[in-house]
C-alpha cells in the first residue's frame, strides 16, 4: 500500500496536469517527459551498470536526426521512425561500448565524449542529409496517420512511451540480467567467476541505454519542430548527467524527478535574470551536500527528520 498509493497519485497527476495548463505548460510537460527518458537511460547505465557516459547528447542526436530523416526523406510513419531511431541509436551505442570493454572511469568518460563530438561533427558536415549549418525542419509527431498537432496531444503519446520504458527498466532491474549487471558493478571479478558474461552485459546495457535516449531524441526533434547540431553539445551531455544524479540514480522515481528538474529549473530561475546560471550552480552544490542520494530520497529524509522531531 505504501508504494501503490504514491504511484497512483503520480500517474493521476501526470495524466490530469495538462488539463490545467496552457500550450507553454504542455510544451514543458513534453520536455520533462523527454528528459525523464534520458535520465532513465542514464540511471540504467550508471546506477545499474556502473558505466559513465558524458556523451549521451550524441545518442540523442542520432535518434533526433535519424527519426527526422526517415520521416522527411522516406515518408516513414512516425511510430516506425521512433522504433528505427531507437534501433539506430542502440547500434551506435554498441559501437561506443567497444572502448568500455577495455577502459573504465575517466578513460571511458573521455571516450564517450569523443564519440559524441565526432557523431555531432559528422551530422554537421553531412549537409545533404541533415541541412548542416542551417539545420532541418521536423514534422510533428503522428499516430496512425493522424498528426498530433498540439503538444497537448503529443504529451500523451510521449507519456505512454515513457511508461513503457519505466516498465522495461523496473523489470530489468529485477531480472537475472539486471542482477548480473549489479554484480558486475560491485565486483566484476566475482561476477565473472559466477558465470556472468561481462562483455555481453556491458554491450547490452550500453545499447539499451543508447536506444532509450535515441527514442527520446526522436521526440525532442518532433516537438521542437527543427533541429540544429547546437542542441547536442557537451553542455547538454553534462546537464543530462546532472539531472540523473540530482534526481537519484538508483530508482525510476529519481529519473522522473530528474527530468522534471531539468525542464523546470531554467523556467523557475529565469526570474533571477543574470544570476540565473549562478543560482543553478549553487543549487547543484546544495543538492549534493544536503540530498546526496538525489531528490528521490527526499521523502525518506523528511520522514527521518519527522521521527527525530517526535522523539
Amino acid at each position: 500500500m505504501r508504494t501503490v498509493l504514491p504511484a497512483l497519485a503520480a500517474v493521476a497527476s501526470a495524466l490530469t496536469a495538462p488539463l490545467f495548463l496552457g500550450p507553454y505548460g504542455h510544451y514543458l510537460l513534453c520536455m520533462a517527459a523527454i528528459y525523464a527518458m534520458v535520465a532513465l537511460s542514464l540511471g540504467l547505465l550508471l546506477g545499474l551498470g556502473g558505466q559513465i557516459s558524458i556523451g549521451h547528447a550524441g545518442f540523442w542526436a542520432v535518434g533526433a536526426y535519424g527519426s527526422a530523416i526517415l520521416v522527411q526523406k522516406l515518408a516513414l510513419p512516425f511510430l516506425l521512425s521512433l522504433l528505427a531511431s531507437g534501433l539506430l541509436a542502440g547500434l551506435v551505442g554498441l559501437l561506443v561500448a567497444l572502448p568500455a570493454l577495455r577502459v573504465r572511469g575517466h578513460y571511458l568518460a573521455i571516450a564517450t565524449l569523443g564519440f559524441s563530438l565526432v557523431i555531432v561533427h559528422i551530422l554537421y558536415e553531412w549537409d545533404g542529409l541533415t541541412g548542416g549549418r542551417q539545420g532541418m525542419f521536423v514534422s510533428r509527431p503522428s499516430l496512425f496517420g493522424h498528426e498530433l498537432g498540439s503538444d497537448f496531444q503529443a504529451y500523451y503519446l510521449i507519456l505512454a512511451v515513457l511508461a513503457l520504458f519505466v516498465w522495461i527498466v523496473v523489470n530489468l532491474r529485477r531480472s537475472l540480467g539486471g542482477l548480473s549487471l549489479s554484480a558486475l558493478r560491485l565486483s566484476d571479478v566475482a561476477a565473472q567467476s559466477c558465470g556472468v558474461n561481462r562483455a555481453g552485459a556491458t554491450l547490452f546495457v550500453f545499447a539499451l541505454s543508447a536506444a532509450i535516449t535515441g527514442v527520446s531524441g526522436a521526440f525532442y526533434g518532433a516537438i521542437l519542430g527543427q533541429l540544429s547540431t547546437d542542441s547536442f553539445t557537451l553542455v547538454v551531455s553534462l546537464s543530462f548527467l546532472t539531472m540523473a544524479i540530482v534526481g537519484g540514480l538508483n530508482s525510476v522515481v529519481g529519473a522522473l524527478l530528474g527530468g522534471i528538474f531539468l525542464a523546470y529549473a531554467p523556467e523557475v530561475l529565469r526570474a533571477f535574470e543574470q544570476w540565473q546560471m549562478f543560482i543553478y550552480g549553487a543549487l547543484l552544490v546544495a543538492f549534493m551536500h544536503f540530498l546526496p542520494d538525489g531528490l528521490a530520497s527526499l521523502p525518506r529524509r523528511l520522514a527521518r527528520i519527522g521521527r527525530r522531531g517526535d522523539a
Partner: peptide, 28 residues
C-alpha cells in the same frame, strides 16, 4: 571536504556546479 566521503559522482556534480558559478560570476 564536507562531501568527500560520499560517492565520487556527487563530487563531480559539485565541480559542475562550481563551473556554472564561476562562469556566470565572471560574466556578472
Amino acid at each position: 571536504k564536507p562531501i568527500s566521503d560520499g560517492p565520487p559522482l556527487n563530487v563531480l556534480i559539485v565541480t559542475l556546479g562550481l563551473f556554472f558559478m564561476f562562469n556566470s560570476l565572471a560574466g556578472i
